[in-house]
């Protein structure tokens, strides 16, 4: 089975015979589309409008053109949050993808033990962000924390996980990976189960080694899932908010402040809705570009193969 690398997310699909352009199709999409427009498109456009104004929540604002954007790009803290957010995405997305794939490869069997282990790795996904951060704060706090107990027992120099600027974002990333690992793992398990076993049988007859089987059969077969996982995770991890807010409040020295935290802070704490809206548009563009870049890079690779 050659994986159809280039069809991921593509719009042209197998067209059912004799189906000509008709409005019936739109009817199926309409219910979702109405909600989507009302809940996302209109607020987003409204947000673009707001981003050009000096405005709070309680009255008409004043048109100021691009000033909010200009101010953002000269705002050290905002630029720092952009860097932090990229750093966080770099910390989490590759890890989630690789660990998720590794777990899936190891657990791609139907046995009770494997099932249970798979269940355990998925279980953290069901928790809410409040619970997750509560758990990890308790682990990372100095003195009483689990980590600090371990470090003391091992006679290591304790690390101030949440209050060392070099560690704070890494700590948040660790908690995030623990929280989010379930979904990528499951998506990979699903993909692995789709690979026809006769491929492996044929390879075994040809005397292919383990890594050869992985490289020539497994990897090409799950390429689309890899891309899917990466894109989903990019989109999700760019929106880091709750974990950082609850574990470090963005500190110390803004080392773990994310763009969404900046937006929340500007909008709700400072009532500076215009700036919050402008920052939202920038984040939206960043995510879009990152996800698209990933998509096109993988598409090109697929096409050249």
């Amino acid at each position: 089975m050659e994986a159809p690398l280039s069809t991921f997310g593509e719009i042209t699909v197998t067209i059912v015979k004799s189906s000509r352009t008709s409005w019936t199709g739109l009817l199926f999409v309409l219910p979702f589309l109405i909600v989507f427009i009302a809940m996302i498109v209109i607020p987003l456009i409204w947000g673009i409008y707001l981003s050009l104004h000096k405005v709070d929540l309680f009255g008409p604002g004043r048109f100021i053109g691009l000033e909010n954007y200009v101010r953002l790009f000269s705002n050290k803290i905002f630029l720092q949050t952009v860097i932090n957010t990229f750093y966080f995405v770099l910390l989490t997305v590759p890890a989630l993808t690789l660990i998720g794939m590794g777990l899936a490869l190891a657990l791609n069997k139907e046995s009770p033990v494997q099932n249970i282990v798979r269940g355990i790795f998925f279980s953290s996904t069901v928790l809410s962000v409040t619970v997750v951060t509560l758990i990890w704060r308790i682990i990372f706090i100095p003195n009483d924390g689990l980590m600090s107990n371990i470090f003391t027992a091992m006679d290591w120099q304790p690390i101030a996980f949440l209050s060392d600027p070099n560690w704070s974002l890494i700590s948040v990333a660790i908690a995030t990976i623990w929280w989010c690992i379930g979904l990528p793992m499951m998506l990979f398990v699903a993909a692995l189960q789709q690979i026809p076993s006769d491929l492996y049988e044929a390879a075994a007859i040809d005397g292919a080694r383990k890594w050869q089987r992985f490289y020539y059969i497994t990897l090409p077969s799950i390429t689309r899932t890899i891309i899917l996982v990466i894109i989903i995770e990019i989109v999700m991890q760019f929106q880091l908010f709750g974990q950082a807010l609850l574990m470090t409040q963005g500190g110390p020295n803004n080392s773990s402040r994310s763009i969404v935290m900046f937006i929340y802070d500007a909008g709700f704490r400072r009532w500076d809705v215009g700036t919050a809206a402008a920052a939202s548009q920038i984040l939206f563009l960043l995510i879009l570009v990152a996800a698209m870049a990933q998509f096109f890079v993988s598409r090109k690779k697929g096409a050249s193969q």
Partner: peptide, 12 residues
């Protein structure tokens, strides 16, 4: 004391 968060300082 260093690196303590709120609850840690209270119990300290």
């Amino acid at each position: 004391t260093k690196n303590m968060d709120y609850p840690a300082s209270v119990s300290a």
